[in-house]
């Protein structure tokens, strides 16, 4: 067995992928909290236990993400944008030309060349607008689980527009809308549209087709629809988009 582990220590979640050659054996994630290395090791321990494997079977651990320096003695370290590009290109069967990744604290637009190599990228600066953190904030105010966002936005009657893309101002705007009796379905749909506009601004004029949405928020079909409406093109999503970067770390380290 050629057991390799990809570990993505992100700002909101730690994701782990186990592979044997081209096969993905196991995936697992845990919320990020202080002591990232021990959380990561516990997560890897869960994976080994579920697969019935011993620690000695591990050939290599590749680490990426904001917290990669917090993991002592990794087998390899990868930058998360290259890992995202490599992971998605492989998992999409070599079809990806552009990725929009929404992470916990950032939004990235990644351009790949025809051979799947990272050719260019754009990333937001320290502003939290349009990131996973923005979604979490909205979910808390709306007292709604993030998993329900997609379904709820589909049920929206009217199409609202949030005036603010700033996380702080949007928060007070959502509170005002709720206070004025606006259904939360409409607010959620407006949130998706707001993030899609943000992504569109980051993309600019350049588009490499097809476009893939990646990262945890990509599991939200409401966001996918909003992005398609904004970019006027089909947006594709992998089955487990939150694990692409962890998987890609293994590929980049090869």
């Amino acid at each position: 067995m050629d057991l390799k582990i990809g570990l993505d220590i992100g700002s909101t979640a730690i994701k782990v992928v186990f592979t044997d050659g081209d096969n993905i054996l196991w995936r697992g994630q845990s919320a990020t909290r202080p002591g990232q290395e021990s959380v990561s090791r516990a997560l890897m321990g869960n994976g080994l236990a579920e697969l019935g494997l011993a620690g000695e079977a591990i050939v290599n651990v590749s680490v990426t993400g904001y917290g990669k320096k917090l993991f002592g003695r990794p087998g390899a370290v990868a930058d998360e944008i290259s890992a995202n590009a490599a992971g998605l290109f492989r998992l999409s069967g070599g079809k990806a030309g552009m990725i929009v990744n929404i992470g916990g604290q950032d939004m990235k637009v990644i351009f790949l060349d025809a051979r799947g190599r990272l050719s260019d990228f754009r990333m937001n600066d320290k502003c939290a607008a349009g990131t996973g953190r923005f979604f979490e904030l909205a979910a808390r105010i709306l007292d709604t689980s993030l998993e329900d966002f997609g379904e709820l936005s589909r049920r929206a009657g009217k199409t609202l527009e949030l005036n603010s893309t700033c996380a702080v101002f949007a928060e007070s705007e959502i509170v005002s809308l709720l206070a004025s009796g606006t259904p939360r379905e409409e607010i959620i749909k407006a949130l998706h549209a707001s993030i899609a506009r943000r992504a569109s601004a980051l993309i600019g004029k350049e588009m490499n087709h097809p476009i893939w949405l990646d990262g945890g928020p990509a599991q939200n079909p409401g966001l996918v629809e909003a992005l398609e409406d904004e970019l006027l093109t089909e947006v594709l999503v992998l089955e487990h988009p939150q694990y692409t970067v962890a998987y890609g770390a293994i590929l980049v380290a090869r």
Partner: peptide, 11 residues
Amino acid sequence: NLLTRLEAYRA
């Protein structure tokens, strides 16, 4: 954030 971008830029 800057380091993430610079590492990818190097790639």
